[in-house]
Structure formats: structure tokens, C-alpha cells
Amino acid sequence: MEAIKTSSLTKNYGKSRGITELNLSVKEGEFFGFIGPNGAGKSTTIRTLTGLISPTSGSAKVLGHDIRKAREAILADTGYLPSEAVFYPGMKVKDILAFSARMRKMNCRKTAEELCERLQLDVSRRVDELSFGNRKKVAIVCALQSSPRLLILDEPTGGLDPLIQREFFDILREQNRKGATIFLSSHVLSEIQRNCSRAAIIREGRIIACDKVTALSKTNARRVTVHGSVALKGLEGIRNQTEGDGFVSFLYNGDMNLLLQTLAAGNLTDLSVSEPDLEEIFLHFYEKDGGRA
């Protein structure tokens, strides 16, 4: 079964672009990444899936329910972590968590206590006294305490220190192993690469690639770093060339024999040829068709 399935989902904001003809399929139990820079349409997609905004056209199902007809049924099994965690001023963390649980008609105290302990969150503090990172922790506990079938996370790690980020992803992987579907929206590509099995790349409101993360990373292009002196002029298939103190690095997508001949003609002290990381692939997708990086 698909946890999320959109068909030509479109949202227009008058003159400004939202999302266009979005087709997305996330299977139940997947750890799915949703990549794109700010303004690409990630949050619009998430807001449409969670019923905060209505689509202009197209359709979408979340956990088998139509987003237009069964908003409450979807939200009953969905934990949502917004990019900006804002709560009611004057309330303590424990009151926010209890309020969220009551809205779900659940008693989540035990799970909430465990999560707060793991994320080092002091529940006796008032939310308006908390730092951005600590408010994010409150939002994480709110999203996770009901052990939902689907977790929709919009830029979840902003403000979290590296240790808490690691703990947070450990928690997500545990939830995923228990069967929860994770939909992780982020522009931090290393997060996607480390945790997700599949990912979609969104650009200017449209999905431009959707595949396994390993497949997205797989490309004929190679990152070549050469130490020493070599004349690269005339060699076709070179992109993203950077030069430093005694070295030159570039992405190469041309004939490998020609590259080897060119390198053999130079005076090299060191050479490395590696697969490009997801960040470079991502930039590659954004540069295609005259797009911006």
C-alpha cells in the first residue's frame, strides 16, 4: 500500500507558483526523502497533504484516504513536524505535550517521557523561554508521541545540535523499523543520503527526479582531483572545475580514454577519481535545462 500517492497535484497561489502536476508515490514503511531548495514547493506539498491548504487541481491520497474528504482520518495517523515550531506563549512544555495528546484523544505520557529524556528536553520550562532548537524538540515530541503510521517532517533538524540530530535520526530509524513511513523534506542532502532509501527532487514546483537514493547518486560523472600540473584545455565533459594550491578538481562526464591520455601527458603527484556525492548530483539536476543552482 502507498502511504502517499499524488496524481497531478497542483496548487496555485494566484500569481506566484506553488506546485505543478506533482506525481509522487511513497510506499508504506519507506524512509523517503524530499529534496529541494527553499521556495521549490516542498512546504506547499506538505501543507496540501496535511490539509492546511486545498489543492487547486489533481488528487492525493494519504494512508489510503483522500486529502479533500478525510482530513481527520489522515491526521489521526500522521505526525507532522513543521519547519517552524511555534506554540502558545505562557504554556509549559508538558502542557503543550498534554494538549497535543488530548487533541488526539490519547494518553501519550510514557512515550513523551521517553522521547523528552532522549532529546534532553526539560518539560517544566515555558515554551516562550525556549531556544529555537528546544522548541524544535517540543515539536518533535508532539509529532512522535502518538507513534503515528506516517511521519511528515519539514526541515526537521534546523536548530538541533549534532548530538541531538544523531539521536533524532536514531529515533526515526527505530520508528521506521517498527513500520512507520517517514517523509523527510530537507535541503540538507547528507541527511537524505544517510537515512532515506528513496528520494524525490523538486524544482520550481515540479518533481524532476524520483528514484532510490543509490540510483540518484549513480551517474557516469566522476569527481576527479589531480595534484600536479596537467593541461586540461580542449578536454570535453568537464564541469564544476575548481583550482587550489597545486591541485585541480572537476566533474568529468566525457570519454575516459581521452581523460587518461590527457592526464598521462601531464606531471602528476597524486590522483583521485570518485563518485560524486548527492549534493553534486542535486546541483547537476538544478543546472539542467538552464535552471539555477
Binding site: T50, G51, L52, R71, E72, A73, L75, A76, T78, Y80, P82, E84, A85, V86, F87, Y88, P89, S100, M103, R104, A139, C142
Partner: peptide, 15 residues
């Protein structure tokens, strides 16, 4: 206005 709508309206309670 206070940006709490995202929190309130993503709970399983009808509008």
C-alpha cells in the same frame, strides 16, 4: 498571526 495554526490544525480535529 501567531503562527500556531500549523500546530493546531494538524491534529485530527475537524475545522
Amino acid at each position: 498571526r501567531d503562527k500556531t495554526a500549523e500546530f493546531l490544525l494538524t491534529h485530527p480535529v475537524s475545522r
